[in-house]
Amino acid sequence: MPRSRVLRRVALRLAGAAFVLWAVATLTFFAIHLVPGDPAQAILGGPGSQASQEALDEVRADYGLDQPLVVQYGAMLGRLVTGDLGDSYALKTPVAELIGGQILGTLALAALALVVAWVLAVGLALWSTSAGRIGRAIAGGLELTAAALPHFWLATVLIAVFSTSLGWLPPVSNDAASGLVLPVITLAVPLAGFLAQLMRERMLEALEQPFAVSAAARGETAAGLRLRHALRHAALPAINLSGWAVGYLISGAVVVETIFARPGLGRTLLRATELRDVPVVVGVVLVVALVYVLMTLATDVVSRFADPRIAREEAPA
């Protein structure tokens, strides 16, 4: 591919990412303004507050809530460009600061869960493709069951077994690494169910391909064939799913962080939802969108390196 086309493609990709962020911000902003509640009330103690009319008027002026919607929208975009997400209604602190303090915990949790899910999925896929029909049926059942486990239920069972009965692991997060084990497993198992399904099918497909057959003819062992060829083939779609998977994990973090009492974005979002703390909700949604966009760009690059054919197959969507 000529250099100019590569540059054009990169530029297009970045512009697309910027568009996604702008659209998410705009959609959230206007959606939030359909909310029946009064933001000034939310600022003055939220639901059940007994704020006076004077206090409400003062807050409206302070926060620019008495301005036309378009002016408020412009002001928000202006702030966003400079990285300012506004102030939380409930905590009165800058949203960016609040999210900054919570995001690492959630990202660490999501990243570890992604790795564990991969390990589980690859293991299951390798085993099941070498097992016979019965093994494959069992693996299929396991995958579907794992994918159908709600996080809150899995977490409760894990706590009951590994903390309360066996006493091996702490039931709530703490400073030690052991506090991460149960939350990571809770998030990883259902995801592993999805990934294993995907990889197993792709591996079976790959093993029927001409290159696999010829490799086998050259004397490649079954295990080697699986590891060297089929796995690489199977990993690609799963890699491409990583952007989606991270979104799925962050969304699962809402439940997992609540159960395991971990600080993080998920819990922040849940609390902000209950208090109708609009700037925090918008902030978290934007940050998650940013993470998704970056992750998608990264997987694009990775899969391009892993499989040069993609450049040829490339389609805009």
Partner: peptide
């Protein structure tokens, strides 16, 4: 749409 994953969208 992808940038609003599962529960996030639901909460919104």
């Amino acid at each position: 749409l992808f940038a609003f994953p599962g529960i996030l969208l639901a909460l919104l």
